[in-house]
Design a protein around this nucleic acid. Structure first.
Lengths: 339, 339
DNA sequence: AGGGATTCCGAAATCGTTTTCGCTTCTTTC
DNA sequence: GAAAGAAGCGAAAACGATTTCGGAATCCCT
């Protein structure tokens, strides 16, 4: 009924627990005959080591904690895939927590992870995280944290990101070079760095190409419902302006919302209004018209973040110092029929 | 540097570890004055209980293990959302593992979860899982397992599913009633129950409506690449038959693959060929033409599975017997422009 | 004042490992 | 044949909590 323990094996073999443990772990001070006997008995009794006990003894859990805003999101599920696969490669398990874009919850989840004594934490910040004391508090306890995607520039830890500003700059520059002149921007919430950076890239592209920046052309999508944010703001935009010829959006789903509204109102894409999304969701390649977008390497981001985190954990275990790194993953433009 | 322990608090207050523990846990045999002092000191020293030690002592981890084929999948990410949220409600954390549709890996992951001493396991089987000994082995150790979506009917444990056969039956019946007569089926791998059931529903609908079942109209999509499976088999189908007027697919992405091929070849949907998908991905509502589909309540499935699992864990802890339940979640047809 | 009840606290066992250190026993060597 | 070295094993401490049980101190009551 109860799982087999070392003690059970030791008792069965009339030897000590210490010897059993050492035999199983390949210590050299165990004769090959007893080692063989232990191995055999362990298999016979279907021994499965109790990780909880091991964790307590070794003071590490071989477990990583992950906090993301939401898992039902193509990008984040790709990141999770990368995290889980890379962690597995190094013998780590991962506990997944969601912040639901909620600061209070994010704080609670961090405490939970500390209780669980995870060896390290991966986090992508929630939209309404106003300060980073909760992150710094953990860092200062020497628990390594790697931030990805939605990061805080001011926090001193390793980070894995894309160059959001540059990517946005390139996308908008492409639109401009294609001849579009009145380009609106559907941005995200005001807080997150990615939202700020993509906006800055948008603005810089305009200015650099001699197009005046008009704040009235910037719409904020911050209801955590990208599709309807896009749809509703598209309506609003068309009521307020009749000269928009392109829209650059914070993410593909917003663009799809716009697309829906435009099609319903017989506005041609890209002839009347062009669209350019961000993140390159699978969906974007199959809708009509297909949506131009910026690739955002979620899987790689997950893998790289995890790799860095595990390296840092290793350093801490060995007591050797390490320095924080910021890894910027490359992006590219995928040009499709919407622009 | 090291996290505060009960011993640290006890030492600081010149009382015993036992008393500190009891004070923190609200035992009645602690005077209110010392309780107050302990609480204060715990806060001052920023005490965070070590779950690993608690787990070892209490012999449970308050952790659930989840094994799914892949997390990068809209349906499974919804399930995960449901699982994580329901688990959190009951104070459980979840460890996510992927089987990559691989039987060997699935087995290994199960062992990992046992090592971790999770209190219960949620699993959706991989496509190429040929037998269920590995599942039964765990069940017989009295570790509760709840299967969802891709289940094994023969395994005796609780299950949460939809009625795949009925849902498929309804979808195909709808097509027939709409006047479609030569209806092909793009099915999944041969192994999984859901794939079998949806096929059976398809066949029964034909037969019940007096349409002969033609095995030549069944195409197998089993390359773990739904989109291209749909695309390539669509090509094949059109080469082999010229009278198909509708296709019912195992999942939406397959249908989207077909859709792509049909559009490339100027075959009108639904005039020439109608399409009916399964799972109702978000994508299906925004592509052109929008895709009819069967709703598959992923979030609910995750929640319900977790709820049942935690109930079973409770029963085990209390030593009261329980019986396995099979919960069949309702589905419905979403009729859109593709049929 | 004496007895019983109550209140409060702590020693110690326990969960299942890992790892150090010391103790035998055996082998080798001159 | 004695000293030195090696080989093999086990006792015990430790990780950080929980919980039982018993003891000491205080209280109340006649």
């Amino acid at each position: 009924m109860k799982p087999t323990t070392l003690k059970d094996i030791a008792h069965e073999l009339n030897i000590s627990v210490a010897t059993v443990s050492k035999a199983l772990k390949g210590y050299s001070d165990v004769s090959s005959s007893t080692k063989k006997a232990v191995l055999k008995m362990a298999k016979k009794m279907n021994y499965i080591p109790n990780t909880v006990a091991v964790n307590l003894r070794t003071q590490q859990t071989k477990t990583l904690g992950v906090i993301i805003p939401a898992i039902v999101h193509h990008f984040f599920s790709e990141v999770m895939d990368g995290i889980i696969k890379e962690a597995k490669k190094h013998g780590y398990l991962v506990i997944t927590l969601q912040s639901n874009e909620n600061y209070q919850l994010e704080k609670k989840q961090l405490i939970l992870l500390q209780q669980k004594r995870v060896d390290g934490i991966l986090i992508s910040l929630s939209n309404d995280t106003p300060n980073f004391d909760h992150i710094n508090a953990i860092l200062q306890k020497k628990i390594p944290i790697v931030m990805f995607d939605k990061i805080a520039k001011l926090v001193e830890c390793s980070k894995v990101v894309i160059d959001d500003k540059l990517a946005a700059y390139n996308a908008v520059s492409y639109l401009i070079e294609k001849g579009y002149k009145r380009i609106a921007h559907f941005r995200g919430s005001l807080n997150p760095q990615i939202s700020i950076d993509r906006f800055l890239g948008y603005r810089k592209a305009l200015v650099d190409h001699g197009i005046p920046f008009d704040p009235k052309l910037v719409y904020i999508c911050d209801n955590n419902d990208d599709f309807n944010d896009g749809y509703n703001n598209a309506k609003k935009m068309l009521e307020e302006h009749n000269d928009i010829d392109a829209v650059f959006t914070i993410t593909d789903v917003v663009a799809v919302g716009i697309l829906k509204y435009l099609k319903e109102n017989d506005i041609k894409i890209p002839e009347d209004i062009a669209l350019f999304g961000f993140s390159n969701w699978f969906m974007s390649s199959v809708i009509t018209p297909s949506l131009s977008s910026v690739t955002q390497p979620g899987f790689k981001m997950g893998k790289k973040s995890t790799k860095i985190l595990i390296e840092e954990i290793k350093c801490i275990n060995k007591g050797i110092p390490y320095s924080f790194q910021t890894c910027v993953l490359p992006t590219s433009l995928v040009i499709r029929n919407s622009s």
